[in-house]
Design a protein around this nucleic acid. Structure first.
Length: 718
RNA sequence: GGCGCGGUAGCUCAGCCGGUUAGAGCGUAUGAUUCAUAAUCAUAAGGUCGGGAGUUCAAGUCUCCCCCGCGCUACCA
């Protein structure tokens, strides 16, 4: 293992909140890894931050009539808060809008320029002559060539998901002025990636660079290496590192032609890792360089699969081009997590938003973490379902884990008043790991040692699901230990054996209190409290535990007093997941409805006037004031409400087609106008004795028309 | 269109460089048990390893073709 670790998670883009896919992809795995390293006493820094630049943010700001700064401030706060609540514990959560980051990125640009890594190239880009500026891809909309969506963006069509370039759009227009953009030449700095191709190929496939072996490619995931080779085989092309943008890091002003140019995301976001480290070091009063420039540091990037080539090829090329910097020792990219059979989609609002989860299911952070780790998309895309979430919580966390802890605690309280009993370590009993085997105290502690080190090994190799499985194996073995030895039964005949079994059961729980922390930090803390052990401080408690177990030292000493038994987890009732599923579907349906609604407000088209009539024609209508007394839905009718209306001199039953606009309870007490001499008519078996007058607009919205408040019922309208 | 990664029990997923009867958790069935949030433990049933062909003494594991999912990428209107 290396001397120190620098762990990064992909910077979340600050124009929206986090969903479970983000969590499962880049943040939870990193958090597990880092928490484990801390418990092993390693020197580790875990950095992240908001990625706050780019056209998508300015587009959104324009649409909402606010400044880009307001957008990023809002989401930066939400995201930071969400991480904290779900227990993702960064050493620093920075942001790319900080001055420190701008300086760091600009220094990188200067250094690369000085090293001759760039070539200036001219290309044609769309330009808005009215607004007087070049247009980022996002600023151009037009008809999608694939699905004919008239409002596709220049980089992507949000309806069909196609990746586009602005030149593919049919009838492109600028979102700034609405004008058709024109092509105009512009100059940018291109990183000569082609010159880095050879060493990147060797580094990816053999782990060696500059004659030095830096990592073992066998430790990298298949899909990561495959994706990189896919790119390498097509040949790397120079890539623009600057853009014509209005929200980002300026190309340093002293450089000719820099006016109006911003650093493109690849010279911005990943360098955010470095800026964050610098800020952390400054806050802490330590040097940042060893974490980025020392061979005995392991740099690990946690990302989603969409980010592979940038973290495995482009960013390493940038680091190498700069010189001094180390390369990542691994980039354990995860695949994607789907939701209830469909891809997560922000634009379709098909997502479980983490900030909503922590608000709606407070105190259940670990239940989500557990299910996400259990289904983490480590090797391929995986799936989150609310039903699965309920099952994993109820069967594994509540039944197995919490059940085991509770029965050991209860039995100890019942038999020994909550005091850890002293034991005769020579006694043999049935091992929890094998019903056929007898075990001794020493052997069981040794077995726990093996399981704990096995878990550590899996975590070190980014096999978090497997590590979690072993955690549950310890709990199951604990349950079996009780089951095989039946302390509740033998307590009368062989009290000494009961002491051994329960003491050992408590050692299992103590091991769980440490081993569960990387995965379920909140539950781990509760376990420490139950056992009356000090809270974990990330001071190599895992390592100490390994050593103690190896030497046969129990974690909980005889006569140690426990706290009262409490349940570690609570069941998730059916209603809770039904509500979440309904919410998910409603949100998606609302979004779909909004998408099909006319995109632009069309000029209102009033109905043509009807044929002229005489006063006598009007006088035939007997319109009266009335008040709705009762209202109820008509069965098997979507639109109908059955109303009882007071006309002063009598009450009428009136069936009215307003159910889709008004809930029954919302119309009771309402004053209305009633066409009182309309011939009765049966609707859905109910005779309607009149008609409620409503105003209706072009979109079919309805509104009651009524006399002024407090007007008596039964009087005519002239 | 090209490239990459996947397609394994009802469900969610492991299976490294080819080698005894293909694994785990959940679910199901049966039995045991009652300390514990109708929890726990044991046993069993269940898969022609996407389809086809080939290499090999031997293939889920290698090669080729096809189908499906996902990702990256090209090009065209």
């Amino acid at each position: 293992m290396k001397k120190r670790y620098l762990v990064t998670s992909a910077l979340p883009y600050a124009n929206g909140p986090l969903h479970i896919g983000h969590l499962a992809g880049a943040y939870l795995p990193a958090d597990i890894y880092v928490r484990y390293l801390r418990l092993m006493g390693k020197d580790v820094v875990f950095v992240c931050g908001s990625d706050e630049h780019g056209a998508a943010i300015t587009v959104r700001a324009r649409k909402e009539g606010v400044t880009p700064r307001e957008i990023v401030d809002t989401y930066h706060a939400i995201i930071r808060d969400t991480f904290q609540k779900i227990g993702i514990e960064f050493d620093i959560y920075h942001r790319t809008s900080e001055a420190l980051h701008h300086e760091t990125s600009q220094d990188f640009f200067r250094e690369l320029l000085k090293n001759g890594q760039f070539e200036e190239k001219e290309s044609d880009q769309y330009y808005d002559e009215t607004a007087g500026q070049f247009l980022a891809d996002r600023y151009i909309i037009g008809t999608c060539p694939v699905c004919s969506n008239p409002d596709a963006y220049g980089d992507q069509c949000e309806r069909c998901g196609s990746t586009l370039s602005p030149t593919q759009l049919i009838n492109p227009r600028s979102t700034l002025s609405g004008a058709a953009p024109v092509m105009r030449p512009t100059t940018h700095w291109y990183l000569k990636l082609n010159e880095h191709e050879a060493w990147l190929r060797e580094w990816i496939n053999t782990g060696t660079a500059g004659g030095q072996t830096l990592h073992d490619p066998a430790d990298w995931k298949n899909h990561v290496i495959g994706q990189c080779n896919s790119w390498l085989e097509q040949g790397l092309q120079p890539r623009a590192m600057t853009r014509d943008l209005d929200w980002g890091v300026d190309v340093p002003a002293e450089i000719p032609h820099s006016a109006g140019k911003k650093l493109y995301v690849w010279l911005d976001a990943p360098i955010g890792y470095i800026s964050a480290t610098k800020q952390w070091a400054a806050d802490k009063g330590v040097a940042w360089e060893p974490y980025w420039k020392s061979d005995d540091t392991a740099l690990v990037h946690f990302i989603g699969k969409d980010n592979i080539v940038f973290h495995c090829l482009i960013f390493p090329a940038i680091l190498k081009a700069h010189g001094d910097f180390i390369l990542p020792v691994n980039v354990p990219a995860n695949q994607f997590m789907n939701l209830e059979g469909n891809k997560l989609s922000t634009s379709k609002n098909w997502a479980v938003w983490v900030h909503e989860y922590v608000a709606e299911l407070p105190g259940r952070e670990d239940e989500l973490r557990y299910n996400m780790i259990k289904n983490m998309p480590e090797q391929r895309d995986s799936e989150f379902t609310w039903k699965g979430f309920q099952e994993s919580t109820n069967t594994e966390l509540v039944n197995n884990l919490a059940g085991f802890v509770h029965r050991v605690m209860v039995l100890t309280h019942k038999n020994y008043g909550g005091i850890v009993p002293a034991v005769d370590q020579s006694r043999e009993f049935r091992s929890g790991w094998d019903a056929e085997q007898t075990g001794t105290y020493d052997q069981e502690l040794h077995q726990l040692h093996l399981k704990l080190s096995e878990m550590g090994r899996e975590i070190e190799h980014f096999n978090f699901r497997e590590a979690l499985r072993i955690l549950m194996e310890i709990s199951s073995a604990g349950n079996a230990l009780l089951q095989f030895n039946e302390p509740w039964k033998i307590v009368k005949d062989d009290p000494e054996l009961v002491k051994v079994v329960l003491n050992l059961g408590l050692q299992y729980v103590a091991v769980l209190s440490v081993a569960s922390r990387p995965f379920m930090p909140f539950a781990a803390a509760r376990l420490r409290t139950l056992l009356n052990l000090p809270a974990l401080q990330d001071r190599q408690e895992w390592l100490d535990l390994l050593n103690d177990l190896a030497e046969g030292n129990p974690v909980l000493r005889p006569n140690h007093a426990l706290n009262p038994a409490e349940h570690l987890f609570g069941r998730i009732p059916d209603e809770l997941i039904e509500a979440q599923v309904a919410k998910l579907q409603a949100a998606a349906a609302a979004k779909a409805a909004a998408a099909t609604a006319p995109a632009e407000p069309v000029a209102p088209r009033f109905e043509a006037l009807k044929e002229e009539i005489q006063y006598d024609d009007f006088a035939q209508l007997d319109i009266r004031t009335g008040t709705i007394l009762e209202a109820s839905k008509v069965e098997k009718a979507d639109k109908l409400l059955k109303l009882t209306v007071d006309l002063g001199f009598e009450q009428r039953t009136i069936v009215s087609g307003i159910a889709q606009h008004y809930a029954p309870e919302a119309v009771v007490g309402r004053q209305v106008l009633v066409l009182a001499n309309l011939a009765p008519r049966k609707m859905r078996g109910i005779e309607s004795q009149g008609m409620i007058l409503m105003a209706e607009d072009a979109e079919g919205r309805l509104s009651f028309v009524s006399p002024a408040e407090g007007w008596p019922n039964g009087w005519g309208v002239k």
